[in-house]
Structures are given as C-alpha cells and as structure tokens.
Design a protein around this nucleic acid. Structure first.
Lengths: 342, 342
DNA sequence: GGCAAAATTGTAAGCGCTTACACTCTTCTT
DNA sequence: AAGAAGAGTGTAAGCGCTTACAATTTTGCC
C-alpha cells in the first residue's frame, strides 16, 4: 500500500499505457484529453496511489500547491480564528498553508519583500490579514504574479473582505445614544505601523458620525487613544477615571479594550453598567462570559470568504474579473454592560 | 535590486568564477571548499540577492526548507501560542512553516497519513502539538524519514517537551488542601480521540495523588467529566450544583473549564471564593483578569523549545543522539478565587 | 472519397538544484 | 625525490514534472 519507492508520473504512464505528457494533462484536467484516456489515467493513478511531487511540479513551472497566510500575529483571537478558517478552506481545496506571522517586528517589510517575494517561489498565492502595507509595497505585491486576497484592508488592487468599520462603530455608538447617553467617551485603537490596526481610524469616524446624527459633537477630551489590548483598554480607562471627566458611557473600539476598561472600573470600585455603560466591537468569546454588550463581527467567515476568493482566482485563472471588495454584516448584541441612562 | 528574472545558482557560479557544483557546496557550507572559494561565493550570492529555489533543491534530493506544525486546532489559546512561538523559531532558522490544523475531524488519520506522509515530500520535519496518535501511526511517522518533535505527548520515539501534568494537578490540588479544604471536586477533561486532550488522565492522577498524600480518598461523585472548554466547565459545574453535593473547593483541569465553573456559579448567585474556591491549570491571559488562581505552564516556551529541538535535528543530522523528553516547570499562582477554608 | 481542420497523443527539452565520480593540485610519506 | 593520499574543483547525470512543438488520429464537408 504505502510504497517506500516514490510513485512517479512515469509509473502512471506505463500502467495506463499512455505517455507522460498525456498523463500530466489528464491529471490536471486540461482540455484535449479523451474521456477514455482520462479514465485510464485516473484508474492507474488511484491504483498506484500516485501523488504528484509539488517540488517537481513547481520547478517545471506549475503551481506549488501552497498558499501563504500573512498576519500581524497568530495569537490574537481575531487572527487565530481567521487563520484557522482560511486554513480549512485551503486544505479542502488541496493547498498547503504556509503561515507567516509578522509579530509586530520592525522587519515587516523585510518579511514581505525578502521572504514574501522570496515566497513567490514557494507559494501560489498570499492571503493578507490586516497587514499594513505602503503604496509601493502594494504595487510590488500586485505585480509579483502572486494571487492575492486580503481581510480587513482597503483600497487594495485585489479581492478584499472585511466589515464596514465605520458602520460597526456607528452601531455601537448609536446604541449608547439611543439608551439616552449623551456624554460619551471613546477608547480608540492607535493606528501604528507596527500593530497595523488599520481599522481604528474608521471606527473613530463612525463614532463621530453617530454623535453628529444626534446633533452632538465629539469632546476631544473624551477621545482616549490606547492599544487594542486588554492592558491598553485598562490604561485608557484609568486615564479617563483619574485625569479626565467620567462620561456616562464608553465605546471601546474592540472588545479586548472593553475588557480592560471593565477591569479598570473594578479596580476603582465601579462596575458596568452601574457607573458607566460600556460597549465594544468584536464579540470575543469572553464577551459573552462577561456580559459585554458589543457589535459582533463574523471573524471566521471573513477568513473563509477571502480564502475562497483566493482559491477561485487560482483555480479559474481565466476568469479575470475585477477585484471585489466585500463587506460582511455586523450585528449589535445587547448584553449587560449597557443600560438606559436615566 | 529586485530582479524579475530569477537569480539562479548558475548566475552565482558565473559571477564568482567557480563551477555550479562548488557554489552549491559553498552555499550549504559543506566541507572541501576553500575559504577563498567560500568567500567569493558568499559575495556573489549577496551581490545578486540569490535565494535558492526550494523546489529545485527538494527535487534534487535536498531539503525543502519547510516544517509542518500539526495541531488539533489553531484557535485555542494554548495552540495559537505554541504555534506562533514555533513559527518564530522556524522562521529565524530559515524554514517556512506549514500549518496543518486537524480541527477535531474524524479524518485525523487521513490527514496524517494521506497528507502528512504526503507532506513528507513537502517538508523536512513535523512538529506535533498534542496530537493523539495510535501506536501504528507513531511507528509509521517515525519510519517516514521525517524529523519529528512534539509538545505534550508521551512515550514517543522522538524529542518531546511538555509539562509534568500529574505534578501540575498535584500542585493545584495541594494548594487547595493546604488552605484547609478537604471536600474537593474535580472538573476533568474528557480523553477523546477527537479532541486529543491527552493530558486529562495524568491530571486526574495528580489530583488523586495529592488527596492520597493528605490521607484522603477521591469521591467518585465529585469527579465530573467535561470538555476542556468554557462551556464544558459551565455544564460540569452546573451538574455539580444541581445534582451532586457542593464541595468547598473545585480543581478544574484547565483554566477554560474554570471560567465556565465561575460562570455557572454566578448564574446560581454564588461566587468564588465566597462559596467555593476554584483553581485551574494554564494561566490563560483571562485568568489574571478574572483573578483565577491557577498553575501556570509556559506555553510559548514549550512550542519554542520543541521547535528548536527539531531544527537542531535537521541541522545536525550527524548528531544522532537519543530522543529526549523535557519537562518544563509549572508554577502555582495564587489569586483571588481560592482562600482558606475556615 | 479525399483533404483540411480539429482533436488527441507523443517527443524532448528544460526548470534549478544535488551528487556520484572524475580530475587537478597540494601535501605528506619513505 | 617519486608515489600515495588528500584537498579542492569540475563534469554530467538526473530528480519528477510541464510544455512547446511535432506526429498522429479523428472529424467534418464539399
């Protein structure tokens, strides 16, 4: 069954009584192969347990059968989720998944251009998750010949899927406003090169828009910038409590920051929604646990969707349709950290 | 700088004025290359920005330059952490990381033997994270010619690193006992084929050992089996509260189960440590947030350590030392969910 | 029925690298 | 000082696959 000696295309050719060339074409389901030949080849291949050598295939100009996923990190909930979903799609489509975690190093560029354009020899395509790329980097990638797709990126010349961050923030903020809150603070993620939280800006805009829709204006003193982490949220909330005025409600632009805020409150003997209402964005599994109101975004779906788009491009290289940009729906989930302001 | 035309070994050979063969050897730092030649080659390669083609290398019998990480899932905190740590080590050593997530499918075997032994053509080595393998599968893998290392597996014929699960459970349980608790329940992870919680059995033993050391015996009615998830822990705790007797302290064999237990208590108007003391194992980032007492295990370290072991094997194929088994230290972290029983 | 066009299949030349093996030079031996 | 042993280098034969292009068979049509 499991042969120690490699089964090559040659063996299949001999068994099926056809030439290597025909076998190669049949295996890849190229046109100009008779049904007869096709059948013979499939049979022979199955009987022999033939598996093409990706190395040979690649070397000869074919595909590598693998796709790279590039993410800022693999540990954060969002990315772990998206990576796994994408990996599943790739696996099911017969691709190996090569994981590249940037880990917030300064060598992002080097990774992308040293390895990634170096990667172009090893993978057929790249799935970018929230990677912060410069104009020129985008251009280079687009010209690399690699199939590219992304999650959570905007104005890129390839398929992208994400959520409407402005809208999500608007939803969260509007919820607060509709509960009668008008004194709002926002915990806004920093837009850094390193951590590539590309979404923070849009979310802040959505917050502003919601206020505007209710004829309110943003109080700059209640916009506190923080890292999109538990600790970042905690520090930001402490800042708010200690050095600024306490609003009646807080919009954290991601759930992890909201957790931190919750924690900071607890440290000051306060709790939500008793003293302050709090809402986040994400619907992290812990949010349910903590009763955090939030705007849910489909994470695995985004990864899977983008992965499918990429696989489609790879498999139907002929259909050269325009790059598409998809927005998945977000949904307000009201739990226990927000309540009506009396 | 970035050439569109591939730089091959041939180019390096020409520039350095040596033959392809010598270049190949110099590049791989094989013996029988003069320092002079070595220097010329390095220079030329650097000047040209030469990167070997892994496909060609592989095809010609060399290495693929990539390593597979096989894990039951990539999303769980433990695995995400370990995967990232290992990926970093591999990346730094010049290897690509191929991620294979089993996702608890019934096709584990197929993955491992269809793909993985299929993978043997695509990777140089495999890092197994807590994968539940049968005897014969282990044997096959060991005979595959692939370099193998693992995290959290026992009695395998390759390098392994993990924690002493019995001891960790013993530490957690002893903590409870020393606080004066003698009426203990345990939330024990199920040992399933699918989820491959290989550690549950050992942890249960450690629990029993601690009791024994204090001249107590395990009450079967207070051993409740659950999935190692938040929801699993919640259900288990509910079971305890609703249908069995309530102990004064609970040892959950992982932090996530402890979270669920905490939640179940809250649903019944109880809290830790007021009504029941609770301790877990892991030191999940949320544990700090929730004040959960626990036994910390170094997760990233385990991944990195095992990854290094694997890379060493690959790079020093000559040093054929025995497979080693390493246990990393675990540490009791006392927080707020455990207190002295009066 | 005969010939061009279309469909199918085969031939052979690589892809970029590794590696046995052959070949030069250097060093040691004795 | 001559031959053996070794160090350093080059030659050439693949690894298993893809792909022009050539060869062959089939089909369609006047």
């Amino acid at each position: 069954m499991v042969k120690s000696q490699r089964v090559t295309i040659q063996d299949v050719a001999v068994l099926s009584g056809l030439s290597i060339c025909t076998v190669s074409r049949a295996l890849r389901k190229l046109p100009n192969v008779s049904e007869n030949a096709q059948a013979k080849v499939s049979d022979a291949a199955a009987k022999l347990g033939y598996k093409p050598s990706s190395a040979a295939s690649r070397l000869a100009g074919g595909s590598t059968g693998s796709i790279a996923i590039v993410a800022p990190t693999a540990t954060a909930w969002f990315f772990a989720q998206a990576v796994e979903a994408a990996e599943e799609v790739f696996g099911d489509s017969g691709f190996d998944t090569v994981l590249v975690s940037l880990r917030g190093r300064p060598s992002v560029k080097q990774k992308v251009f040293g390895d990634l354009l170096g990667l172009s020899q090893r993978v057929d395509g790249v799935l970018l998750l929230n990677v912060d790329l410069s104009e020129s980097e985008i251009a280079l990638l687009a010209a690399s010949g690699l199939a590219v797709a992304s999650v959570g990126m905007t104005s890129v010349p390839w398929d992208n899927v994400g959520i409407d961050d402005r809208h999500a923030a608007w939803q969260a903020t509007s919820h607060l406003l509709e509960l009668g809150h008008w004194d709002l603070a926002v915990l806004s993620g920093r837009e850094t090169q390193e951590n590539s939280v590309l979404t923070a800006g849009d979310r802040l805009k959505g917050f502003g828009q919601a206020l505007k829709d209710h004829h309110l204006t943003v109080d700059p003193d209640l916009v506190v910038t923080s890292n999109s982490t538990i600790d970042g949220g905690r520090k930001a909330m402490n800042e708010l409590i200690a050095h600024r005025s306490l609003p009646t409600a807080v919009f954290a632009d991601c759930d992890e920051a909201a957790f931190g805020a919750l924690m900071a409150m607890r440290e000051h003997g306060m709790s939500a929604p008793k003293n302050v209402s709090i809402i986040g964005i994400d619907d992290h599994p812990m949010s349910w646990f903590l009763g955090l109101s939030t705007v849910a975004q489909p994470v695995a779906d985004q990864g899977a969707f983008a992965a499918n788009l990429l696989v489609d491009r790879l498999q139907n290289a002929d259909a050269l349709n325009e790059p598409s940009n998809h927005f998945l729906d977000t949904k307000l989930i009201e739990r226990k950290t927000t309540r009506r302001q009396r």
